[in-house]
Write a protein that binds this DNA or RNA. Structure first.
Length: 575
DNA sequence: GCCGTTTTCGGCCCGACTGTTTTCAGTCG
């Protein structure tokens, strides 16, 4: 059975960890990490690429050796090198590597000197004072490690972007009170709008760093100061969220923002380009010898290596640098491009507001249209609609539309895709709607083959328009169900259907990678909020952020169309 | 392990902070 890309990427990462513990050449370690990132970012399964005869060694950073290892992994799920490393290196070493403050060198010292087999044994050794006696360890290391070991089980997972906002805004307000502070911005994965963030990176400009660092560490939500120097500091908030602060002079703002926004892989690639041109790029600027030639803005930094500005959401070293050099960067979609929302619920099922209230909220946001897509009867726990209630809802929509209040409601349904791929309402009922979005809400555990067939059959239905939350995942809570997404994307293209990019911050389903694949295949995406309350309509911005990470432009998104242009697109499948 | 407009060998991004091995290695981002 072929192995899927995330598993291949994980195996490569495991090799990198273990090689690191063996004190291998750091550049060899990097090659494995880089390969892992590249495989994770592929839209196509490696097994499919192999079947059609693609040469993996043409992928960036992957040479003949890694190509062969990746092919072995794809075909067999195993890698002899990995098996060998696992035999030679105790499993506890990999676990210790994850503790903050421990790198490969000190993990080796611990394992060899203390004969550790699990983290509990380290805990006891710390309490007995045996660790502080080891070379390269001392009293301070003991304290930090004790904290790390005891906190490891309750360490917060990565935080969803929307939740991170709640911590960031008050902290920024507090920092604005620091003496001499000028610019203040959040960089890192937060600025790149990744769906989750591991920590928060804040950049400030000021003539002197010390007062800003002092203000930062004095914030009332700070639980622990992990490091504090004259220009940077790291704290853990009481919630466990880690926050890094960096302070630079105003003339370095652009260089520092670029450096601090990442991703690391993007930065390394940019610096290498600079290096080839005899430039040194660091967080203070772009330098030729001692002379600073750029750095006040990010645009200057890119300009120094003859590239146009690259939007933060693209900075993952997944081809954006090559596209920038070739002048083919996408013109990314913006929130203002959206004209409507094609996924919303009302209190007829599990929403909280009436039709009229949802219509008014959408109008207030400046939307031209809103599709009402309540659940169908199979989803009994939501009081899903049967044909009679759906028809009554349609009449109510007609009455609201007749008022011509500036918003048009579309008659839709989020119809359940049943286990065999049939839809939960009769054809003649679906045929009376403006729009049918279908979704899987049950039997998440079907095999990949069955789940894929189920959805493909639903797409074949003559009234099917949009596949809602295509993988069913809940970020950090529920894995996506196992489906062959490239196949579904191709089927949507053949059938004239659309896929949803569900904008709910718990879902963001599709992923950036699948968005990009859909774009390449020519399938339009519908950014839908799946609103269950009026306030959820504002989640459109999270969908747009994800769309931008997926390289989507205005024309790649269905609901950037005016109502007039939208209707024929929806009608195309309503035959 | 990868890669090539100085190179098929010899490089590989760059700097801050910490603790401890009193001059810098380890770790992190």
């Amino acid at each position: 059975m072929p192995t899927h890309n995330p598993d291949i990427a994980q195996a490569l990462d495991d090799v990198a960890d273990l090689l690191e513990l063996q004190n291998a050449n750091p550049f060899r370690v990097r090659a494995y990490r880089n390969a892992s990132r590249v495989i994770r970012g592929l839209g196509t399964e490696v097994s499919v690429m192999l079947q059609r005869g693609d040469d993996l060694a043409e992928l960036p950073g992957i040479g003949d050796d890694l190509a062969e290892k990746i092919a072995t992994l794809a075909k067999s799920g195993h890698l002899p090198l990995l098996d060998r490393l696992r035999k030679d290196i105790p499993a506890v070493a990999t676990e210790l590597l994850k503790l903050p403050g421990l790198g490969p060198k000190r993990v080796r010292v611990l394992c060899e000197e203390l004969d550790l087999h699990n983290v509990e044994q380290l805990h006891r050794a710390l309490l007995d004072g045996r660790v502080r006696a080891l070379p390269s360890f001392g009293a301070a290391s003991e304290t930090k490690l004790l904290h790390a070991v005891e906190a490891r089980s309750k360490a917060p997972a990565r935080l969803k972007l929307a939740l991170a906002e709640g911590y960031v805004e008050p902290l920024l307000d507090w920092l604005r009170g620091a003496a001499g502070i000028d610019q203040l911005i959040v960089a890192g994965s937060y600025r790149r709008c990744r769906e989750t963030v591991g920590d928060i990176d804040i950049l400030a400009t000021a003539p002197k760093g010390e007062p800003v660092v002092a203000r930062f560490t004095a914030y009332e939500e700070v639980g622990r100061v992990m490091a504090a120097g004259s220009t940077r500091a790291t704290v853990a908030l009481k919630s466990g969220l880690q926050v890094d602060l960096r302070v630079v002079l105003p003339e370095s703002y652009g260089a520092a923002l670029h450096y601090f926004t990442g991703s690391k892989a993007h930065n390394i690639a940019i610096r290498r380009i600079g290096q080839k041109r005899g430039l040194k790029i660091n967080e203070y600027g772009v330098f030729r010898g001692q002379k600073r030639i750029a750095g006040r803005t990010e645009k200057e930094v890119y300009g120094a290596v003859d590239l146009p500005y690259i939007e933060p959401e693209l900075r993952e070293n997944r081809g954006e640098i090559e596209a920038a050099a070739a002048g083919t960067l996408p013109h990314l979609i913006e929130l203002a491009d959206l004209r409507g929302d094609l996924h919303a619920h009302t209190n007829a099922t599990d929403g909280h507001e009436t039709l009229a209230e949802m219509a008014e909220a959408a109008r207030a946001l400046g939307l031209e249209y809103l599709a009402i897509t309540d659940h169908s009867r199979h989803l009994a726990m939501t009081h899903g609609l049967d044909p009679r209630r759906l028809m009554r809802q349609g009449e109510a929509i007609d009455r609201i539309n007749a008022e011509k209040s500036g918003i048009t409601l579309l008659k839709g349904i989020e119809v359940d895709i049943l286990e065999d791929g049939a839809l939960d309402l009769p054809d003649e009922v679906l045929g009376h709607l403006d729009f049918v979005t279908g979704a899987v809400h049950s039997q998440f555990g079907l095999s990949r083959a069955k789940q894929t067939e189920r959805i493909l059959r639903a797409l074949e239905h003559p009234h099917f328009t949009v596949l809602a939350h295509p993988t069913g995942r809940l970020i950090e809570e529920r894995e996506p169900y196992d489906v062959d997404m490239p196949r579904i994307i191709r089927a949507a293209k053949e059938r004239g259907c659309f896929l949803e990019l569900n904008a709910h911050p718990d879902r963001l389903d599709l992923t950036d990678i699948h968005c990009r694949l859909a774009k390449e295949e020519g399938v339009l995406l519908s950014i839908g909020t799946d609103s269950h309350r009026a306030q959820d309509l504002a989640n459109l911005r999270f969908g747009v952020a994800q769309a931008r990470r997926g390289w989507l432009e205005k024309n790649d998104v269905l609901n950037t169309r005016s109502l007039k242009a939208l209707r024929p697109l929806l009608a195309r499948t309503m035959r």
